[in-house]
Write a protein that binds this DNA or RNA. Sequence first.
DNA 1: CTTTGTGCAAATTCTTTGCACCAAA
DNA 2: TTTGGTGCAAAGAATTTGCACAAAG
Lengths: 135, 135
Amino acid sequence: MLESHQYLRQFSIKPSVQRSAVMNFLLKNRIHPTIDEIYLALSPSMPTLSKTTVYNTLDLFVEKGAVRALAIDEKNARYDVDISAHAHFKCRSCGSIHDIFDLNANMYQLPENKSFKIDSIEISYFGICEHCIGN
Amino acid sequence: MLESHQYLRQFSIKPSVQRSAVMNFLLKNRIHPTIDEIYLALSPSMPTLSKTTVYNTLDLFVEKGAVRALAIDEKNARYDVDISAHAHFKCRSCGSIHDIFDLNANMYQLPENKSFKIDSIEISYFGICEHCIGN
DNA sequence: CTTTGTGCAAATTCTTTGCACCAAA
DNA sequence: TTTGGTGCAAAGAATTTGCACAAAG
């Protein structure tokens, strides 16, 4: 948890008990969790934690650039603590989201465009995961 | 509207008054509209139209492959009648969504992956649009 | 103290569901 | 008729808001 504390400081985020717990969860569970998943995972050990705080915390993390919000899931917002260039795959069947790291680096290049000032990219793939093919 | 009628048949979709009206709107207004935008645009001339029907209709269009549902907007589902390979740009300021057609064709290639059976890709760019830079 | 963070409850927004009625074949 | 389509009202799920209290400096 101390690591999370330090980690937050790198992004100029004042660490609180709640913020460190959320960041700790994100660092140790790289499953692109939803707000609810984070809340449900932490609330047993932090019974007073409120979902509002989880929302506030992730908004702050995104604003400070510590976490990336993913659009790949239409239902819920999902958060990724890995802010390096990589893509995602979402299984249509079970909804799980996985990282894809082995794309050609120039996939992530931002195109020049005279009508828009482009500052970021999100590459999403869809299909069926190994586990769901087996079933 | 007759065109929409024919267009729907290409995708084995039985045309009804409502379905043709929705498809006609999509074909003539390529703004990646939300359900609400479609509903609000059509309801003046179709006062009995219900939002449920708009939902049903777009689910059907997506299922039949006539329309693509976009994940780029976390708030609302957005629909694109152009199913050819292209990317999208979303303005962080005004929320408008624009097409990007001039990417290298191999951007849309689906990677081989032993853990997932990948069948589609969505490439999304984010930033500020021309109009919002001006303001 | 004073500012910032947290948490509860209520409100809002988007989407889905159940069911009755309507329309087309 | 029988099947499929439409539309209303209610339910459900995710997120946001307002405000009071707690914590940290």
